[in-house]
Design a protein around this nucleic acid. Structure first.
Lengths: 139, 139
DNA sequence: ATAGCTGCAAATGCTTTGCAAGGCC
DNA sequence: GGCCTTGCAAAGCATTTGCAGCTAT
């Protein structure tokens, strides 16, 4: 375990969740090393590699709990699986289609101009920009 | 059938596909009435309502064929289902989360500024902007 | 004739759920 | 003790696939 486990516990407690062994381990993997973009599968593998026994169901439960608590943000880029981003601030993404990897683009770097007005009674929930990137065609 | 079936056949032929009964019917539903945003399910229902017997598998096959042929564009907004857009030109989307409906935003109206440089050997496949919209919170 | 299509049903892959056993406060 | 969590296995859902029979060219 790399993260300060006391700090992790506080983070979990702040989210009104119980600091169970599994949750602390997952929080450590997620929050102890800069911004990360992970899927349920990759998080599961990482946990098992570190010798942490967690079931996939628990991974899903907690990814959702963390998301509801505002500790994670779901990024929808792929029709077949969900990505979760530990960076919850306003920003956008590169998506490397060949590898299925995400990379942050700070919101102050790239911006969206002139969003049209919304119908009455509606609000913007979020503005998601995904720059899909691929290898050059081999010509 | 509303569309000019001769025109539809030409469109299908141009995509190097055979103008079968099912394909013509689907093309009619898709391309004979302005821009549309549909899912496999909705297209299937519409076909059945019009009395066109088509299986879901065929719907999926043809949505993909049309997409590969550049007649449709897949829009990824929802983790659980795929949307297809009959507008293949460069543009963006509002997504009404409560109803699961899409609406086009012309690219010349709203724009993305300052896309960062890409690593060498990489190209932009597309820039997708999704403005997620929800009903105002009832305060 | 033959290559391509269709439809069904079975299979897949990711995600969710039900429920009994275990852990935190 | 009581409620939240976990883990397993089963269920769920959108989508894909295998394959036998049909259809356009």
């Amino acid at each position: 375990m790399n993260g300060d486990s006391c700090e992790l516990e506080l983070k979990i407690r702040a989210a009104k969740l119980r600091p169970t062994r599994q949750r602390i381990a997952l929080a450590d993997l997620l929050f102890s090393g800069g911004n990360r973009h992970i899927t349920a599968e990759t998080l599961h593998s990482e946990a098992l590699e570190k010798g942490v026994k967690v079931s996939l169901a628990t991974i899903y439960n907690n990814l959702h709990h963390f998301t509801e608590a505002g500790l994670l943000r779901e990024v929808i880029v792929d029709a077949s699986k969900s990505y979760f981003d530990t960076n919850t601030s306003d920003h956008h993404h590169f998506f490397f289609e060949d590898e299925g990897k995400l990379q942050d683009i700070p919101a102050d770097l790239m911006s969206v101009e002139n969003i049209p007005n919304l119908p009455n009674g509606m609000t913007i929930a979020s503005v998601d920009v995904i720059v899909r990137v691929k290898k050059n065609d081999a010509n």
